[in-house]
């Protein structure tokens, strides 16, 4: 019990003092995960919309694979991205292994299927509501992608948030690809993992508190703003 309360006090102290190491770790975490969400959404939203609207042989199989990929094990993704980014791998020339860029790649692989699968469902539902009207106005199925992504923006923000949640909380992939190098690729989750095993529970706890706070704050803010905007639009 003492360990927990001591750790908690130390944690609050570190946060209160804006500990330099702590701030660097938080900054890197946010940078990596937000980059991954932006890239994952740029790929995942149109991909999901395409799978919702396009009709081609094998589409059903694609959707099954996509839905299954929402549960990709991070350590396996980490391993595969590690192999691809390693010196002898196909993307070895970039030198991204053990860098923030490499971690972004790994997280993009993890969250793109989440964003795509969730947005496919949103766009499919919206299409069934809009189909007759949009076709009447002269739009084709694939021509409707941009329209549906925009009109589904409130529901789609949930898909993007789900991707962010996965990215910011994930440790398995980035610890393999990034290597948890202090000051370079140490993020909140990899640091928690390391500090816990080293016995520095205070730093681990401080990071845990910050991680929880960030995750909850971003979700709460996005949900609140989204709901307000949704109500204003009557959507």
């Amino acid at each position: 019990m003492n360990t927990i309360t001591d750790a908690f006090h130390l944690a609050l102290n570190l946060i209160w003092q804006f500990d330099a190491e702590l701030m660097r770790i938080i900054g890197l975490s946010l940078r990596v995960s937000l980059s991954a969400v932006v890239i994952g959404s740029i790929i995942g939203l149109p991909l999901g919309a395409f799978l919702a609207l396009a009709r081609f042989p094998g589409r059903h199989a694609c959707i099954v694979v996509l839905n299954a990929s929402m549960g990709l094990p991070p350590v396996v993704v980490g391993l595969v991205v590690y192999l691809i980014l390693s010196r002898s791998g196909p993307l070895g020339t970039f030198g991204w292994l053990f860098t923030a860029a490499g971690m972004v790649v790994a997280q993009v692989v993890l969250i793109t299927p989440i964003v795509a699968a969730l947005s496919r469902q949103v766009v499919a539902d919206l299409w069934s509501e809009y189909e007759e009207q949009l076709r009447s106005l002269g739009l084709t199925r694939l021509g409707a992608i941009a329209t549906l992504l925009w009109d589904g923006r409130f529901s789609l923000s949930t898909a993007v948030l789900a991707g962010f949640g996965r990215a910011i909380a994930e440790v398995g992939a980035i610890i393999i690809v990034g290597g948890n190098i202090a000051g370079v690729t140490r993020t909140m989750t990899t640091a928690i993992s390391l500090e816990t095993s080293r016995g520095d529970l205070a730093l681990a706890m401080a990071l845990g508190i910050v991680l929880l706070t960030i995750a909850i704050t971003i979700n709460a803010a996005a949900t609140t703003l989204g709901n307000a905007a949704r109500r204003a639009q009557g959507a």
């Binding site: 809009y130 009207q133 009447s136 002269g138 923006r153």
Partner: peptide, 23 residues
């Protein structure tokens, strides 16, 4: 065509008017 239940985009009145004209 106009339907029994109007299908309006989740946008402003004006944006709904402009949308098909842009098409």
């Amino acid at each position: 065509m106009v339907f029994q239940k109007p299908v309006l985009l989740r946008r402003s009145v004006l944006a709904n008017m402009l949308f098909p004209l842009k098409l």
